[in-house]
Design a protein around this nucleic acid. Structure first.
Lengths: 190, 190
DNA sequence: ATTTAAGACAACGCATTGTTGATTTTTTAT
DNA sequence: ATAAAAAATCAACAATGCGTTGTCTTAAAT
């Protein structure tokens, strides 16, 4: 009947731990964050932490996973215009989402965050654009894989820089820039 | 007189610790590597470790720094042909260097490695090519910064994929691919 | 050969860890 | 409303790793 299998109490406890953790992540690298600390901050017993997560890294991964699921849901809800470049439209939405969650993204994508999260975020774009790109594909799948890797890494890099520069450029400008770089590379300079 | 300020003994001890550490890095994430473990493996007293490094992360950073310095030296020694694209030539040399040190690069650039090292490696290329790029620059410095970030991140991403694919493509092919992506983006697909 | 620096070793108090079992509180199902 | 189930609390545990100390031994530089 009720698909919210997790009851309020559990949800609330986890929320407390997550908030406390993000707060600490802003202040110091994850390796310096102890479970004891997280629990003190959240005012939750340490044994309770262990009944939900195995360690800090497990907690981090779960936070990341929820975020990835949420972006996907967010993109799902949006109908893209078939005529325009899907990539550009999607990047706009992604920048939009990231801006709305700038705080947590800054923490998770920065040096403290782990590379798997980067990969997951890259995969969101890649999975949704591969059809568009595949249409005009003239190289072997193997080579194409390398190209997508380049593109996805470039996107993450630029997103991170944008966050660290205090989101000084507009969402639209950024989406256009990323789109241009992806499609034309540095040749746009000339 | 003698510019090798560090005597043999120190050098040897540090080498032991580094080797031991790299060995452990292959097996598990850095957060699971204890100093006790490093010292046991290297058969060096724990107190000795502390007289050289503050912790695992300090040791890692020093290994990385030495590698970065070494690449720079390696590139320095090589005269580039002014007529051709400096970027392409430099990428060839970098792929060459990485292949020669594939083992350690695989470890340091993978999920266990830290983002600062990525950045450092990116900076090597960027510092040596910015003049070439600046010549044809038609955008504001501010925007250019974003573009370089994209490119540098893309390069690292593709290098890492290459390493993880067991360096299945030749150095030359990779250099050409990276160069194409950087200069023309996905438009090479058409 | 003498001085200087590096490393070995044992020992320390301290913090964090992961787990336990008993107890209380909240949620859910009847 | 009440009983049963699930979740969180708490205190206590041994184990491990931490970082530092002082003393002693060994190697290197002059």
């Amino acid at each position: 009947m009720d698909n919210k299998k997790i009851n309020r109490r559990v949800k609330y406890t986890r929320m407390g731990l997550k908030d406390s953790f993000i707060k600490l992540m802003k202040a110091k690298p994850i390796r310096r964050i102890t479970i004891t600390e997280i629990c003190e901050e959240a005012d939750i017993n340490r044994a309770t932490f262990y009944s939900h997560y195995t360690d800090q890294y497990d907690l981090l991964r779960q936070i990341e996973q929820e975020l990835v699921d949420d972006i996907n849901e967010y993109l799902e809800s949006y109908r893209f215009n078939e005529d325009e470049s899907q990539f550009l439209q999607m990047m706009e939405k992604i920048f939009e989402y990231i801006k709305e969650n700038a705080e947590v993204f800054t923490v998770l994508l920065s040096e403290n965050g782990d590379r798997n999260f980067q990969k997951d975020v890259m995969m969101i774009v890649w999975n949704r654009c591969k059809d568009e790109w595949a249409a005009k594909k003239s190289v072997r799948e193997e080579i194409a894989q390398y190209m997508y890797t380049y593109v996805a890494s470039g996107c993450i890099g630029i997103i991170l820089k944008w966050l660290q520069s205090g989101m000084d450029k507009s969402i639209h400008d950024m989406a256009v820039l990323v789109s241009k770089m992806t499609n034309q590379g540095l040749s746009v300079l000339v």
